[in-house]
Amino acid sequence: MCYSFMSFPLVQVIFLHGLGDTGHSWAEAFAGIRIPHVKYICPHAPTMPVSLNMRMSMPSWFDIYGLSPEADEDEIGIKRASENIKALIDQEVKNGIPSHRILLGGFSQGGALSLYTALTTQQKLAGVVALSCWLPLRKSFPQAAANSANKDMHVLQCHGDSDPLVPFVFGSQTSEKLKGLINPANITFKSYRGLPHSACPEEMVDIKRFIEKQLPALVLQV
Results as ranks from 00 to 15, higher is better:
residue 96 G to Q: 09
residue 96 G to V: 06
residue 98 P to K: 08
residue 100 H to R: 14
residue 100 H to G: 11
residue 100 H to P: 11
residue 101 R to C: 07
residue 101 R to H: 15
residue 102 I to G: 05
residue 102 I to C: 05
residue 102 I to P: 00
residue 103 L to I: 12
residue 105 G to S: 12
residue 105 G to F: 08
residue 107 F to N: 04
residue 109 Q to A: 10
residue 109 Q to L: 11
residue 114 S to L: 06
residue 114 S to N: 13
residue 116 Y to I: 02
residue 117 T to E: 02
residue 117 T to Q: 04
residue 118 A to N: 10
residue 118 A to H: 07
residue 119 L to Y: 00
residue 120 T to Q: 04
residue 120 T to F: 04
residue 122 Q to V: 11
residue 123 Q to D: 06
residue 123 Q to C: 09
residue 123 Q to F: 08
residue 123 Q to H: 15
residue 124 K to N: 12
residue 124 K to D: 09
residue 126 A to E: 06
residue 126 A to S: 13
residue 127 G to V: 07
residue 127 G to Y: 02
residue 127 G to M: 04
residue 127 G to L: 04
residue 128 V to G: 03
residue 129 V to T: 11
residue 129 V to R: 08
residue 130 A to Q: 10
residue 130 A to H: 08
residue 131 L to Y: 04
residue 132 S to Q: 09
residue 132 S to A: 14
residue 133 C to Y: 05
residue 134 W to F: 14
residue 135 L to G: 01
residue 136 P to G: 07
residue 137 L to F: 09
residue 137 L to H: 11
residue 137 L to W: 06
residue 138 R to S: 04
residue 139 K to I: 02
residue 140 S to G: 10
residue 141 F to H: 01
residue 142 P to D: 00
residue 142 P to G: 06
residue 143 Q to Y: 11
residue 143 Q to S: 12
residue 147 N to R: 15
residue 147 N to H: 15
residue 148 S to T: 07
residue 149 A to S: 14
residue 149 A to W: 03
residue 150 N to F: 01
residue 150 N to R: 00
residue 151 K to N: 03
residue 151 K to S: 06
residue 154 H to A: 09
residue 154 H to E: 14
residue 155 V to C: 01
residue 155 V to Q: 02
residue 157 Q to S: 09
residue 158 C to Y: 00
residue 159 H to Q: 11
residue 160 G to E: 04
residue 160 G to W: 01
residue 161 D to Y: 04
residue 161 D to Q: 10
residue 161 D to K: 07
residue 161 D to C: 08
residue 163 D to N: 14
residue 164 P to N: 12
residue 164 P to H: 07
residue 165 L to Q: 15
residue 165 L to S: 10
residue 166 V to T: 05
residue 167 P to R: 10
residue 168 F to A: 11
residue 168 F to L: 12
residue 168 F to G: 08
residue 168 F to Q: 09
residue 170 F to D: 03
residue 171 G to A: 05
residue 172 S to I: 15
residue 174 T to C: 12
residue 175 S to R: 12
residue 175 S to E: 15
residue 175 S to F: 12
residue 176 E to N: 15
residue 176 E to I: 09
residue 176 E to R: 14
residue 179 K to Q: 07
residue 181 L to D: 00
residue 182 I to V: 14
residue 185 A to L: 13
residue 186 N to W: 02
residue 186 N to I: 01
residue 187 I to M: 04
residue 187 I to C: 00
residue 188 T to L: 12
residue 188 T to C: 09
